[in-house]
Design a protein around this nucleic acid. Structure first.
Length: 597
RNA sequence: CGGGGAGUGGCGCAGUGGUAGCGCACCAGCUUUGGGAGCUGGCGGUCGGGGGUUCAAAUCCCCCCUCCCCGACCA
């Protein structure tokens, strides 16, 4: 079993009591007159998404190079808040923190075969002896080699190690500021277990910890079933922050718990639209010049796209295969690959069509004689008289009947799921949303433990590879995802758990004879709040009130307190909750805790 | 990698052959002070780099670099 250690059981009773009795430590001072911050009035020209635009405008980050950013004081405080939440939850789940080198010898990557697999995505460098290294895009190899060195017995296991460290991927196209960078802060954890059952317990611990992390970060998120890609394994969940700018689509069921990345999603059986409605009229060939596309053919023949069959060509073991789906549907490449596994599948591209000029591209039908295998989605069963390509340029065939005019070798769910498709669990219509992938937990199996000799000896003296799990959180990406969710037209509006400062104190002394006393009151409130351990950002600058208010809205602390001539005369401080705009007043002489709950 | 676009002061931009300008920001002074103030005066740029054409190049030509967008690709 995985060892659970709650922080509270960790401390002795006397130590715990001491902590409880200790008075709050004064928060670090921060006056805006000395804060390293420059806000911009103009939007940066290269920012496409709100998180990028606002984090730059508000002086949280600055671009260094494509996909690489420096973190300025306010931004770094947010990053550290996320980091700390992750650290606390990882520790509570029994994981142990390490710090692995970012510079890793390529030899290590050679052993797992991922040197080639990663290819140009890895930043590569050489030392003076021409030994090859890379900047770590992830750390399975290194952590596995370390565990292999140190541990070798079933008595050692389980163990889960994690780090929060910079990762480097030379993305083809970095974009959206922090959302897809070439340098990003990632928490990566790796579990090592004796077998699959033990792994599942470790996995569950991490999964639960992830739920707590994203809840604490105030993100609206869903854990969705994911395809684990080359890694394999059934346990695989992506944590998606719901956001319109997300790069991944996922489906979810409003009625049950089902949720999955569109790539991994499958549809349930439903009342599918049919072609022909049971009739089986004789096949006829029709002339359809210059309309290789589904929409064009449907238009020309005055039929619905879903009465056509789409025949998608792909390569399997060097031979041609056909994937057959209704005309209004797309083929899910991963589902197709799964249907033919372990044979590798690749959809035909331009090069393939150039290499095979004999293919009547756009006019191929499911009865094409050159196909070595025909894979069809069960939706094809529901129709009886389809329109398909006639395997002759500029011709389509009407009334194509399954079993009579064409045959299917493999039946598999290969259509991409769309909104409204029946849920595979409960049959209710599915919804689709876009998300930012902020976390991923999955089973690594024994791929790395075998490649890097992470084995243990069991009770009987037999050796087995350790079963591994991998758990990632995009820490810097979480900052951007939260900024996407929490902002308005005036600027950022941080949730309390991540805000650089809890309170933004604004002095508005004016120029009247009360100015000195207003300033004095503001100073007093500042010191008092700091003394209580509350993080306060104090705008003591000698600038106009409008500048202060605009900057306060832009940088987005959860609560703004205004000490001004208006309020001081009446013995009050004005408070504004940034997120809601709600305003109220607090007694100037008793601002014990102005933070929002 | 394919297509498109752009590199001019910290940020946003104008400037199509005659020796570089505007707004914001920054500095100084005066005025102003409850939602990004006004006036005056300043600092700051080898116009991405190299080569070429020309009496003269930010501007025209060639090469290179960087960045942005679309696509392809993708843990």
């Amino acid at each position: 079993m995985v060892n659970i250690r709650q922080p509270s059981t960790f401390l002795g009773t006397s130590e715990r009591n001491m902590r409880l009795r200790r008075p709050p430590v004064a928060s670090a001072p921060m006056r805006m007159s000395s804060l390293f911050l420059r806000t911009l009035r103009d939007d940066p020209a290269d920012a496409e998404v709100e998180s990028h635009r606002l984090l730059v405008r508000a002086g949280y980050i600055r671009r260094v190079s494509a996909g690489i950013y420096s973190w300025l004081p306010l931004g770094y405080r947010v990053l550290r808040k996320v980091e700390q939440i992750v650290r606390e939850e990882m520790d509570a789940a029994g994981a142990q923190e390490v710090l692995l080198s970012i510079v890793q010898p390529l030899e290590l990557w050679d052993r797992s075969g991922r040197d080639k697999a990663y290819g140009p995505v890895m930043f590569r460098l050489h030392d003076r002896k021409e030994t090859g290294y890379c900047l770590s895009p992830t750390a399975e190899e290194l952590v596995t080699s370390i565990v292999a060195q140190e541990y070798g017995s079933y008595r050692d296991l389980p163990v889960t190690l994690y780090q929060i460290n910079w990762k480097y991927r030379d993305e083809l196209r970095p974009r959206f500021g922090l959302l897809r960078g070439r340098e990003f802060l990632m928490k990566d954890a790796y579990s090592f277990d004796v077998d699959l059952d033990a792994f599942r317990a470790s996995y569950r611990q991490m999964y639960d910890a992830y739920q707590r992390v994203f809840e604490r970060c105030a993100l609206t998120f869903r854990a969705v079933e994911a395809d684990s890609g080359e890694m394999g394994g059934s346990e695989s969940r992506e944590f998606m922050a719901v956001a319109a700018v997300g790069e991944d689509d996922f489906v979810w069921c409003p009625n049950c718990e089902y949720a999955a990345n569109v790539e991994a999603a499958r549809r349930g059986a439903g009342a599918d639209p049919t072609a022909g409605a049971g009739e089986q009229p004789p096949t006829e060939e029709v002339h359809t010049p210059d309309v290789p596309g589904i929409a064009g053919v449907a238009d020309l023949l005055k039929v619905e796209p879903n009465t056509l069959l789409k025949s998608i060509m792909f390569d399997v073991d060097g031979k041609l295969g056909l994937a057959i789906v209704p005309g209004d549907r797309e083929v899910n490449e991963l589902a197709l690959a799964a249907a033919l596994a372990p044979r590798p599948v690749r959809l035909y591209g331009d090069d393939d069509f150039t290499a095979h000029p004999e293919l009547p591209k756009g006019y191929v039908g499911p009865h094409y004689s050159g196909a070595s295998v025909v894979v069809a989605d069960p939706m094809v069963r529901s129709g009886s008289a389809w329109v398909t390509g006639a395997n002759r340029v500029d011709h389509h065939a009407r009334n194509m009947v399954l079993g009579r005019d064409f045959a299917v070798d493999v039946w598999a769910d290969i259509v991409s799921v769309v909104r409204g498709d029946p849920c595979p669990r409960c049959g209710e219509p599915l919804s689709i949303d876009r998300g930012i992938e902020v976390g991923h937990v999955f089973n690594l199996g024994t791929k790395f433990s075998e490649a890097l000799d992470a084995r243990y000896t069991d009770e009987k003296g037999e050796q087995h590879p350790m079963v591994m799990g991998c758990y990632g959180i995009g820490v810097s990406r979480v900052v951007a995802a939260v900024a996407e969710e929490y902002h308005d037209e005036h600027g950022l509006a941080w949730p309390a758990a991540l805000a650089p400062y809890a309170v933004h104190l604004i002095a508005v002394p004016g120029r009247g004879e009360q100015a000195a006393s207003v300033t004095a009151e503001a100073e007093r409130v500042y010191e008092e709040l700091r003394g209580r351990g509350i993080d306060v950002l104090f705008d003591d600058r000698d600038v106009s009130p409008g500048v202060k208010f605009a900057d306060a809205d832009l940088v987005g602390m959860p609560v703004q307190l205004v000490v001004g001539a208006k309020g001081v005369g009446r013995g009050v401080i004005e408070r504004k909750v940034r997120a809601t705009g709600a305003r109220d007043e607090l007694p100037l002489r008793d601002v014990s805790d102005p933070r929002v709950p």
